[in-house]
Structure formats: C-alpha cells, structure tokens
Design a protein around this nucleic acid. Structure first.
Length: 474
DNA sequence: TTTTGAGTTGTTCGA
DNA sequence: GTCGAACAACTCAAA
C-alpha cells in the first residue's frame, strides 16, 4: 500500500528521514506538496520566500521525475487535501518531517490525530535540526535562555549518523495521481521586483551543493573576519537553502567536519552559526509568543514611536545613513542582506528611530529569501534588546563607525547607493559632515539627491538610552 | 546552599 | 592614538 510523503520545509531527497522511512516501508511512495497559506496565519511565506519556493518546487519535481515518482502538487487545506489523496491513491500511511512554528505545530498535531483516528499509520520525523527543542534542557530542567550554555550542551550531546544519500530510484504509484501545476500556485510576484534575484541565486539543490562545496574549499580560515565585511562574499549564504530544507544542517555539519577548517577558530565559529539557528528554534518552541511579543514582559509598554514615514524611509533605503541605506537596498534588490548590515540596520531602526522591532521583522519577513520565523524572531529581539541573550541596552551601533570599520573604502555603499558613488572614502559614511566642495565634486546635494540623516546620531542614541533606562527603572 | 564568573556581533570617555 | 572602565540585569554552570 502506498505511503504519502508530505513535503514542507524539507525539499530534498538526500538526508530526508520521512522519505527514507517511506522507501523502507517497501511499497510505492507518493511525494506531495500542499500549498496551504491559510493555515499559516500571519506567518505564511513572504514575497521573497515565495519566489524561492516556486523555483525550489520546480527543482524538486525534476528530481522526483528522474527518480521515478512524480511530485504531486495540491493547493488548499492540508488535512482535506491529504484525505483526498488517501482516497484517490489507497495510501495507508502518511509521513512527514516536523515543523516547529507554533501555529504549524498545532495544525500538524491535529492532522496527525485526525488521520490516526481514521486508521492510518502516521509518523513524523526530525528532518531539519541537529537537536529538536524539546530535547535540550539545562540542569534545572528548563529551556536555555543564553546561547553559550545552550550550544555547549548541544555539542556535548551530538548523536547522529552520516546523512543518507539521495535515493536513485523510487517506486511510484501504479496509477497517475491528479496534481495541479506549480504555476497555478501563483508564487511569483506580480510586480517585477525579482528580476535581480535569479542573477544572485540558484535556488536549487545543485545550487546548495555547489555553494557548500565552494565554501568548504575557499580560504575559509578567514571566515571569522571576512564574514563581517559586507563587500566580501565571506559567508556561506546557505540560509535560504536551509529554510526550505534543500540542504540539512546535518549535511552541512558533516561536510564541514570532514575538513581541517572544522577545528580552526573560524570553523567553530561557523558551526556555532548553525547553533544559532538551533537556538532560534529552541526559543520559538519554548516561548511561542515571541514572533509577536517580546520575550521580556517589561517591553510590553516600551515607548516606541511608530512613524509610517520613518519606517518607509528605512524600508526604501533612504534614512540618510549610507551603510543602512546600502543594506536596505541590497535587501530589496537581491532578497538578502549581509549579516553585519542586518545588525546595523536593525539597531538604527529600533534604537535611533524608536520604531517597534516587529515592524522591522515584518519587512524582513516579506523581503528576505531566507526569512525563517525562528531566526528572524531571534535576530530582531536580539537587536531590540528584548529577547533571550539579547544585546545589552547600551549597545547602540553607530552607523558611521560601523561603516568605517567594516566598509572602510565604501565599496559596499557605492555598489548599492549610486548617488554616493563619487564620494571619497573619508566622507562616504558621513556625507552630512563633508565639506561643501567635496559634496559638490561628488555631485551630492543633501536633501535633494541623497537624504539628510533621519535623526542626529547623538540625539538618537541619547533618546534610546533614556527610553531603555526608564524601562529598567519601572 | 551560596557564591562566582562568564556571557556573538559596541561606544564613549578619560587617562 | 591606545587602552581600560563603565554602561545592567539576569541566566547558567561550576566551585
């Protein structure tokens, strides 16, 4: 009797426990993807991730065609579609790899119960984490709220084999199963905003593999420094592949562990980044209000000053702080923003501009190809100083100093903010302080073709420190 | 049981 | 220019 393999954020054939289990069961295997945005509430895939998903599904379908069992695509309520498929195919068992977003956990638990009540064999697996959140606890039996002890605990308890290779041949159903086209899911954006995306990304399994291979053999010993320079391709850029499970953290971990890089400071740093992803899932699981509300309760009445105009300026890369504007335009243009710049842009939005971190999180959610609820929530609460192991309130990034430190020649700014292309390095991160003749020579008129800073740096910093200090005194 | 030290990513100020 | 201290409060593990 056939087994349905319900694909979600595990769009790969290799190292896929649910798929493996279905194949081991010995009968035919029917892979299915159900597009069910309604059940995801506020956190259905954003625009950029939908673009990625479109291409990832095409790629996955090709791989299944080659293996001999075509990928079935459906749209609508997950349970209803699964039930229809069970009826149509005579499947007696359903398997999937687990997801961890609060709403999805609720939905999937319900589906599992319903299907089991109907007599089906249903199993779920861990396909996307080194450690599932419910398994990691501190000595008092509580979830961790600080990264370092969390990660030490994880490293001390690593238990897994080598990732399974992709099956070459999969036995498909004897009768064709009805499916809809990937195009009919309408995942591509209506406005032509994604033109640059395909130049920047290869959203396929092959893309993930070549990126990992490249990262492994590159002069990775410099990762610790290079990863902080936005104008250098010094990070692995595997985040979007990880989000959709085109590659698994176990595959990455195993591949890195085979290299001498793994034992270096840089290598450990990189593996710890996988750890931060795990920590995000840990926090999301144990504190499931955090996508919407701060982990720390006292932040419920933080005096944010929501201002649609300021938010808009930030989103469009028109804050007047060159490093922030470059980052926000890189995001819009390429669906991705360098990690260092994410921190600077987030800090400026939350601290200098006093915009609620949730507004920034929402924008990132819609525009990042690697948008992932666990990591996005952790990142924004970290920047806002309101989460677990967050940046201390007094750590206010200075966008000028950060620009000068991590983009000393201003190349990153010049690449994404062409208005400033002719500014000399000395002034490019603080054009408002540049002498009139320098501005003139560079063709920059502040307030005309490049904005004046949205707030004075000292004023913004002091205002933020004051707000955070008052919060503490409550 | 209590105490102690350390903890992703920074900035400013004063010596 | 360089360097250390100060800028909280809390979590967690080890002593």
């Amino acid at each position: 009797m056939p087994t349905l393999v319900w694909f979600r954020q595990d769009l790969r054939l290799a190292d896929n426990p649910a798929l493996q289990a279905a194949i081991s069961a010995g009968d035919s295997v029917i892979p299915v993807y159900i597009h069910d945005i309604k059940s995801e509430g506020e956190w259905g895939p954003g625009g950029a991730t939908q673009w990625w998903l479109h291409h990832a599904l095409i790629d996955l379908a090709e791989q299944f065609n080659k293996a001999g069992s075509p990928l079935i695509i459906r749209q609508g309520d997950s349970l209803k579609e699964l039930e229809k498929l069970i009826k149509e195919t005579g499947a007696t068992s359903v398997v999937w790899n687990r997801r961890y977003e609060p709403l999805i956990v609720k939905r999937d638990t319900e589906i599992k119960t319903q299907l089991r009540n109907k007599g089906l064999k249903v199993d779920s697996f861990n396909g996307s984490l080194l450690h599932e959140p419910q398994k990691i606890k501190n000595l008092s039996g509580n979830p961790f709220q600080v990264f370092t002890p969390f990660w030490k605990n994880c490293l001390a308890n690593l238990q897994f084999g080598t990732p399974a290779k992709a099956p070459k041949k999969i036995q498909g159903p004897t009768q064709p199963v009805s499916t809809v086209s990937i195009d009919s899911l309408k995942l591509l954006p209506k406005i032509k905003w994604d033109q640059q995306f395909s130049k920047e990304w290869n959203p396929t399994r092959a893309g993930a593999e070549s990126r990992l291979a490249e990262f492994k053999k590159a002069p990775v010993k410099d990762y610790n420094e290079a990863r902080d320079i936005p104008n250098i391709d010094g990070t692995s850029r595997l985040s979007p592949y990880l989000h959709f499970g085109q590659i698994s953290p176990l595959e990455i971990y195993t591949a890195i562990k085979e290299t001498p890089f793994a034992e270096t400071k840089s290598g450990q740093r990189y593996i710890a980044e996988i750890g931060w992803r795990e920590f995000g899932y840990h926090l999301l699981h144990h504190f499931n209000h955090t996508p919407e509300k701060a982990l720390r309760k006292e932040f419920d009445d933080f005096p944010w000053q929501p201002d649609p105009k300021l938010l808009r300026a930030w989103q469009k890369g028109k804050t007047g702080f060159p490093i922030v504007d470059a980052g926000m335009r890189q995001l819009w243009l390429t669906g991705w923003q360098h990690n260092r710049v994410r921190m600077i842009a987030a800090s400026v939005l939350v601290k200098h501009l006093l915009q609620p971190w949730q507004a920034g999180a929402k924008w990132f959610w819609d525009t990042l190809v690697d948008a992932d609820l666990a990591s996005n929530t952790l990142g924004w609460q970290w920047a806002g100083g309101c989460g677990a192991d967050a940046a201390p309130y007094f750590r206010v990034f200075n966008p000028v100093l950060q620009g000068e430190k991590f983009d000393p020649q201003g190349e990153y700014v010049r690449k994404y903010v062409p208005e400033l292309a002719k500014m000399p390095a000395e002034w490019i991160h603080k054009p408002w302080e540049a002498p009139a003749e320098v501005l003139k020579a560079a063709g920059v008129t502040l307030g005309v073709n490049y904005p004046k800073p949205a707030i004075g740096l000292i004023e913004g910093r002091d205002r933020a420190l004051e707000a955070f200090k008052n919060l503490r005194n409550k």
